[in-house]
Design a protein around this nucleic acid. Structure first.
Lengths: 369, 369
DNA sequence: CTGTTAGCGCATTCAC
DNA sequence: GTGAATGCGCTAACAG
């Protein structure tokens, strides 16, 4: 077979309108052409080459207004929807970023995702979401994700980072959100973005101590999530700074039901404390409510503080003292960094840390505003 | 140029290990090969054809254990990550579904998304998320999305459906979540999945009337969201059934700040009512709290009920009477239907409607549990 | 301003 | 059980 000009097989185009389609009525319904118009069919119908079709669709190169119109007309007459995969293959970019988070309960992940998606969209990137919880084989799920994105953002607490960063070994840019440096095996090309934890936790704990409390308990398991262990470190630091002895953390999962259980252990006398520093608001809220229902006075008998400033924290009485993180900004930042990296930028040598804000309400002992 | 067998340009493969890589130590770090291993480089390294590589990676066809190992070895020596776009182009499927929702505040969208992602993942599909709010040009964003997915699920209240379904005209399967039949212009190939609204709203309203209330107000704008207008229809129906005259809805956006404003209008006497049926919990909660802060007794002076059963509704006192929707299931269902459709199934003729559940707590006047 | 021509990397018949 | 060849639909030089 000699080198003949590429002959596209005439797609069984069975024109929906008989023939003289000189001025087709676009509003005519039911005129769906076979299926799968391609750049070739559009080009043919417009009487131009595929390059021209590509040009007007891309809007990059200059095309005469006349041919431009012909192409546009053909495009919507045929209901042409370009095949993203073909474009991706040609431009050698997926134009998509992956985001891996554990789940989507509470405002934290949602805000993160919103920030990420917003910025990604501005940058012309799609976002493919992967929820790690409940996936039986996370590594392979991540591997599959890597197949279709230019870069991946992972939440540090997703328990994926180690596996992930190893599996990808510099193959794709990765940014770890709210992770710790230990997530980065041997200086791989991984970046970190996070909200400040240690200092604000120390500050919050000190504030509670300033209220005259002396037997504080830290509630929540620091082990699985880097940010939580940082918060516990702050808790410890505040104690150490005054020569006090910090208690071991009460290691429970971050569930409302676990909060109730902790409250019961306090009510039964098993746990003793005059203040509770909780790993997040869900825990703090469920504990406080249970305590109150049992007749305890918060903060009179016992102070309770949380972390995240969820909506409920504004509605309960007393209001929940907590810490607000710039979660949305974290998402934005992650997308931004990913974009830089895909563009060829070198990974930032040090983690980017965003400031947090302690929100004082009544549950810590402050005069309720 | 005669038809010579396709000569792949030897990728500048500068082998990271000198030569005799007979038994390469996989743990050796820093051995990242150039960049972008392809199926060709893997094949070459394994001494097989690309077809064979494809076979073992796909796991479909039968390959001898020996060659299988060689391939696998080459794959991870080269850190081969297949290019999803190339696969998509070849198999003529994106293996991805799009989900279009307005935003991600509150538990509703999150649960929906979780359900959708979970089911999609089980079906081997990625999910590309598009948040409509804040996008200046939603139709084009959706158009771009259509470029890279096999099907799209849209939230009825996203205000996209009409544009969307028109723009896609049967090009891709679409399922509208919590939309109304009016979203489906002229019997296009669009499906509807939704939670029941009219009946449960009527039931909830009747319950409030049964508490002896007579001047009910519906708070929230039914116009933009089909599900809200259905709920208002239920509100109306409950009144009509007893020969009562339903009030016009108090048309406000679904924001806490708006709830506060509504409460203020009640406190000032501008609005008069002994019960408030709110379009969602956020509204109901902000109104109730404001009323209480001003000294009003809920439900004594005025009853308040919401919709969605958010977390806060369990924590406030009195507990918020509300309606729980099977949101997660809605997401699962949407993914499921999309998959069926992509598989060639015909669109379901009638909407699939999932049952909801009225949750009675104290804010309606019930003895608070 | 427009058309021709190569690939992009993978899955997939066919042969063998 | 394995290899050679072809095409998926699009972008991007390169000519004209």
């Amino acid at each position: 077979m000699a080198t003949t000009p590429r002959q596209r097989p005439e797609r069984a185009a069975r024109p929906s309108t008989p023939s003289t389609a000189s001025m087709p009525d676009p509003s005519t319904p039911g005129a769906t052409p076979a299926a799968g118009a391609t750049i070739y069919s559009v080009a043919e119908r417009a009487g131009v080459s595929i390059a021209t079709v590509s040009r007007v669709l891309q809007g990059r190169a200059v095309v005469s207004e006349a041919t431009r119109q012909k192409v546009l007309e053909a495009v919507d007459a045929l209901h042409y929807v370009p095949l993203g995969a073909a474009r991706s293959l040609a431009v050698r970019h997926h134009e998509a970023y992956g985001l891996v988070i554990p789940e989507l309960t509470g405002p934290y992940y949602s805000e993160l995702l919103m920030g990420f998606e917003t910025r990604a969209a501005e940058l012309g990137q799609s976002v493919i979401l992967l929820l790690a919880n409940g996936k039986s084989d996370v590594p392979s799920a991540v591997g599959h994700l890597a197949t279709r994105v230019d870069g991946i953002a992972v939440l540090g607490s997703a328990a994926v980072p180690p596996t992930l960063t190893r599996a990808l070994r510099g193959r794709k840019p990765v940014v770890v959100i709210a992770g710790s440096s230990s997530d980065v095996p041997g200086g791989e090309r991984v970046e970190l973005v996070a909200a400040e934890n240690v200092h604000s936790s120390e500050q919050l704990t000190a504030h509670v101590l300033d209220h005259g409390r002396s037997r504080l308990l830290y509630v929540g398991d620091p082990a699985p999530a880097p940010d939580i262990s940082e918060r516990y470190a702050g808790f410890v630091a505040a104690h150490t700074a005054r020569g006090l002895d910090p208690a071991e953390p009460v290691r429970v999962p971050f569930l409302e039901s676990e909060g109730v259980a902790v409250a019961d252990r306090i009510l039964s006398g098993e746990l003793e404390a005059d203040a509770l520093v909780c790993a997040n608001d869900e825990l703090a809220l469920s504990i406080m409510t249970r305590l109150q229902d049992a007749g305890r006075d918060v903060p009179g008998d016992i102070a309770v503080v949380g972390w995240d400033d969820v909506m409920t924290s504004r509605y309960v009485r007393p209001g929940m003292t907590t810490v607000r993180q710039p979660v949305h900004e974290l998402g934005v930042l992650a997308a931004e960094r990913l974009h830089q990296r895909v563009d060829g930028a070198a990974p930032l040598p040090a983690p980017v840390v965003l400031p947090t804000e302690v929100v004082l309400r009544g549950s810590c002992g402050c005069a309720t505003p």
